[in-house]
């Protein structure tokens, strides 16, 4: 038991710090991705044919390539343009670009699940298109999207581990550093896994709570 305590005392703060990085990267990126996904969705919905097609192309490309590519694109590519961002920002922006594409698709799925007769109903009630969208359509899209958004948040949280490839000291990087520094084979990774599982579990609980708060469906 004593050696565990010594280990905890020596590396506990390092882990907490790394976990805080992982969590704040995930939370900030997710909020930004929600906004970016909503922007893409509105462009897809109300833009002209060419706008809709460009959004589709963007979504398809980012959905069908691994996240590491946009991460490398920004981390290695932007300095060539004279844009020097810290690695964490580069990685965060890459995560936002990719997850925005997924979230756009989630919103689109939620939109498609709405019955078309509602448009006729709204028209016969004399609702303006914008009022109809804001008061009737949008809440339904959001509610339909909750489970998928929760899922996406988990995926994003896990994808922050990839930022270790561009020197961001988050949980995965920290445990790799500790493995190499302490010479322990794999224990640091197990500790990191516990942190990730706790966060994923919390996200699942949050998703359930969000779903339960809108039982009117």
């Amino acid at each position: 038991m004593g050696q565990y305590r010594a280990w905890l005392e020596a590396y506990g703060t390092a882990y907490l710090e790394a976990a805080a990085w992982t969590l704040s990267l995930a939370v900030l990126s997710f909020i930004a991705a929600l906004i970016w996904g909503a922007v893409l969705f509105f462009l897809r919905l109300s833009g002209g044919t060419w706008v809709a097609r460009s959004v589709d192309a963007y979504v398809q490309v980012l959905r069908n390539t691994p996240v590491l590519l946009p991460i490398y694109l920004i981390y290695f590519g932007f300095p060539l343009l004279g844009v020097l961002w810290p690695a964490a920002v580069c990685g965060g922006v890459a995560l936002v670009l990719q997850n925005g594409a997924y979230i756009c698709e989630i919103f689109r799925g939620g939109y498609k699940a709405i019955e078309w007769v509602q448009h006729d109903a709204a028209k016969s009630l004399g609702l303006l298109p914008w009022t109809h969208f804001r008061k009737v359509t949008l809440p339904q899209i959001l509610v339909h999207s909750i489970p998928a958004l929760g899922n996406q948040a988990v995926l994003l949280l896990k994808d922050t581990s990839l930022l270790s490839a561009i020197t961001v000291i988050e949980l995965t990087m920290q445990s790799k550093v500790l493995t190499e520094r302490t010479g322990t084979a794999y224990a640091p990774f197990l500790v990191a896994a516990v942190f990730y599982l706790a966060m994923v579990w919390a996200l699942e609980v949050l998703t359930q709570l969000a779903l339960r708060s809108v039982r009117w469906r």
């Binding site: 988990v154 995965t172 790799k176 493995t179 084979a185 794999y186 990774f189 197990l190 990730y196 994923v200």
Partner: peptide, 15 residues
């Protein structure tokens, strides 16, 4: 499903 693939990879590789 709750741990990143990268962490699983490192864990299994080192273990």
């Amino acid at each position: 499903r709750g741990t990143p693939v990268l962490l699983l990879a490192l864990l299994i590789f080192y273990a």
